[in-house]
Amino acid sequence: MTMPPKQQIGSFSAPLSLDFDGGRVSARRLELLAAIGQANSINGAAKTVGMTYKGAWEAVEAMNNLAGVPLVVARQGGRGGGRAELTEVGQRLVDEMGRIAALQTQFFAALDEDGTLGNSFQLLKRIEVKTSARNAFMGIVESVQKSVVNAEVTLRLASGEALYAIVTGESVRSLDLVPGKVVYALIKASWIVLTPADEKIKTSARNRLCGVVSHIEEGSINTEVLLDLGKGITLAAIITNESHKMLELAVGSRACALIKASHIIVGID
């Protein structure tokens, strides 16, 4: 999947956010992006915008995933932080944010002067939908195989991996799912099953995404594992601490994520 032409990175909307074909980057995450450009550190940028270190890392992963190309290249360095740099595309977005900020100020001033427009704008903000799914990926519909009740939709991610989703026939119609359409796939981290990359097992899971373990965070009950799928795309999985020990996963090792096609939610803007 290639990056759109320079003038079509995304479209800004107020309050300042960035709309990609696969989802929206919030004003708070754009603020984090600018802070990373200043601090060259995830930890330092997180403190600047008032985020936790973990929250900032998750925001960076989400932005890279939604953009389809890396906006930030970072190397983890523990709780003390690590070095992080904006890519050329990331820096370009930050520069454009500065130019747009002045226009945004003028826009809100106009809303304040017109009470009717201001009230309508607040109503539009309330109906924006958010999701608790840990993984959100942009993809392009490659094929749709219909049956009597359901359909299998094949998506192609920016990493080049294919993702298969089972949706109802009604969803195919209402979402207008046709080859070439840009959509996004939502996957809860707890729905993902991890296996070592060299594990030769047969499974009914339709999807098998393999990558390199880039981060592991163990909690009191569960462990979060991040897989680097390549091209700036990461996948987060939540497994039990017991499973983590049994699988002997470590940063740098290869692992595969098994995902049932019925556990993938397909959405559009």
Rank of each mutant, 00 (worst) to 15 (best):
F12Y: 15
A250Y: 13
A45H: 08
I100A: 07
L93H: 09
I264L: 08
A109D: 09
F20T: 00
Q122E: 13
D112H: 14
M138D: 04
A102H: 10
T105H: 14
A46H: 03
L249Q: 05
D19E: 13
L235V: 08
V213K: 02
T234P: 00
Q38R: 10
L30H: 01
A46N: 01
D112R: 11
T154E: 15
A62F: 08
A109P: 00
V60D: 01
V89I: 15
V73D: 14
E85V: 14
I187F: 06
N40G: 03
I9K: 11
F20E: 06
Y164L: 05
V72N: 02
S253T: 11
K54L: 09
G267T: 05
Y164R: 15
E96N: 09
S262G: 03
V148H: 14
I140V: 15
F20R: 08
G115Q: 11
L177V: 07
R206H: 12
V193F: 07
Q91P: 00
L117P: 04
E61S: 07
S174W: 09
L16F: 02
E88P: 00
G118F: 12
D95P: 00
E170T: 10
V213H: 09
N43K: 15
T195L: 12
L124R: 09
L16G: 01
V49L: 04
P5G: 00
N65W: 08
T2G: 14
G139E: 12
I264Y: 06
K231H: 15
I216E: 05
G160L: 06
L124G: 03
R173Y: 11
L32N: 08
V69E: 12
E61G: 05
T52P: 04
S204Q: 04
E242F: 09
L71S: 05
L209M: 10
G230E: 03
Y53N: 08
I127Q: 10
Q7Y: 04
T116Y: 11
L226K: 04
F20D: 02
A14W: 08
Q91E: 12
K54T: 07
V148A: 15
V72Y: 01
R134W: 03
E224V: 12
V213E: 06
L66P: 03
Y164C: 01
S243I: 00
V149K: 10
I233N: 06
I221M: 13
R173N: 14
R75Y: 05
S132Y: 03
L32H: 02
N64W: 01
N135H: 10
T240A: 09
G82H: 09
L226Q: 10
S220Q: 11
D198G: 02
E61W: 03
V94M: 08
H244N: 13
